[in-house]
Amino acid sequence: MADMRTIAVEPRDRAGKGAARATRRDGRVPGVIYGEGKPPVMVSVEQRAIQREFRRIGFFAKLCDIKLKDETIRVLPREVQIDPVTDRAIHVDFLRVGAKTRVAVGIPVEFINEGTSPGIKRGGVLNVVRHQVECYCQADSIPDHLTVDLDGLDIGDSVHISMVKLPEGVRPTITGRDFTIASIAPPTVLQVETPAAAATTEEGAEGAVPAEGEAAAAAGAAPGAPGAPGAPGAKPAEGGKEAAPAPEKGKGKGRG
């Protein structure tokens, strides 16, 4: 477990959006401390302090001490709500923990031996499926990170949770399947192009499926993209107007 951080907070007396907005106008972030069967405490944190901290790897997996007046509370940061545009923190949650509290926490994954992986040497990309793995563990013994050794992995190989040595007392929340943590994916543009083929397909044949288009279909639209039908949501490139909906056969009804 890493060294303990200390966050200075101030109590907040009023709840609701009006009070929360007033807190933000003062350069502070509204927050709450809850858990351990005690009543929740409304607090506020200095904007710069939380902004500096919450983007660090493992922020949500490290205990910290909160100094509230002359009292020190041991907490685990649970959530930081951010503004979608500015990425500034707008609210923060802290979970009060004791020595024996068991928590489900996302532990960051650290990858080692990237230089000795033949797949990455050949131009493959480490495709991190899970940047952190959610595990059950005791609050006072949360590991800093889970170490994944990439030595000997080639393009197409993947690392599953069963290949990771978990510290004692730590078990993943996902049970029943050997989920993937990372894989070595081929790079976006991995094309073997003969000079003759390059001369005919390059740029000139925009209507045909370009070589890069294939790679794009492989990378495809991210599965989360709205309206994307499945993982490789992108339809292979079609020339110009063909991609647009078919033209209307007849005119619509006249409306004067």
């Binding site: 131009g123 790079p187 976006t188 991995l190 890069e212 990378a219 991210a222 993209a225 309206g227």
Partner: peptide
Amino acid sequence: TRHMKRVGRIWIRVFPDVP
């Protein structure tokens, strides 16, 4: 893709679904 020059990976997070 062209600037990345055969390395790395790209994801497109948006999809044009409005005609």
